[in-house]
Amino acid sequence: MADKKPAASKAAQKKSVPSIQVRIDRLNDYEGSNIKAFASANIGGAFAIHGIRVVDSQKGMFVAMPQSSHKDGNGNTKYSDIFHAVTAEARSELNEKVMDAYEQALAEQQDKAAEESEIEEQGIEPTM
């Protein structure tokens, strides 16, 4: 009779989320657009995701993964995620990192605009 392997505990089955680095590729300030930024992520130094979007909807800000679209048999457009997190922990971590990077990019943009405004008010020519 074959010996059965003992069932692994849930804690042992739970895998840690690899390190995630996110950068904002572009802030999007087009009037009327609900897309606020485009981001890229590096996961564990092994995978890169491009085309992540920060979206402002009626329900609030959220992170949208890259998608492809196609027409179904009735001519309706359907969307499929190209990339998505498998676990809730990984999804939460990725969303948090993207939103943190977005907030930081916004703050940097506002700081730069304030500096330029201050320089303009003082009548100092910016140097190159």
Rank of each mutant, 00 (worst) to 15 (best):
D100P: 00
S33A: 08
T127I: 09
I43F: 06
A64K: 05
E115I: 11
F38A: 05
A37R: 02
M65W: 13
A90Y: 13
M99G: 02
K10D: 14
I119V: 14
A46C: 09
I24N: 09
I49A: 05
S57L: 04
F47I: 11
I43M: 03
E89W: 00
V63K: 02
I43K: 03
N28E: 13
V17G: 03
M65Y: 14
M65G: 05
P18K: 09
M61I: 12
A113N: 02
N76R: 15
E125T: 14
Y102N: 02
I43N: 02
G32M: 06
E120F: 08
E115L: 15
I24P: 00
F83W: 13
D81E: 15
I119R: 15
V17R: 01
K14R: 12
S16G: 14
K4G: 08
D100K: 11
Q13S: 12
A90I: 04
A7H: 06
P66N: 07
Y79A: 02
Y79E: 11
A85T: 03
N74M: 08
V63C: 04
T87L: 08
F47T: 07
L106D: 00
L106A: 03
D29P: 07
F38C: 01
A85Y: 06
H50W: 13
T87R: 01
M128W: 11
L94Y: 06
I20W: 00
V55S: 03
P6I: 10
N34P: 01
G60N: 06
E118D: 11
A107D: 14
R91N: 15
F38I: 00
A113H: 01
V54G: 01
K5F: 10
A11F: 01
V86P: 00
Q122M: 13
Q67S: 05
E121H: 03
G32R: 07
D29R: 12
E31A: 08
E96C: 05
S80R: 11
V22L: 07
V55N: 02
V54Y: 06
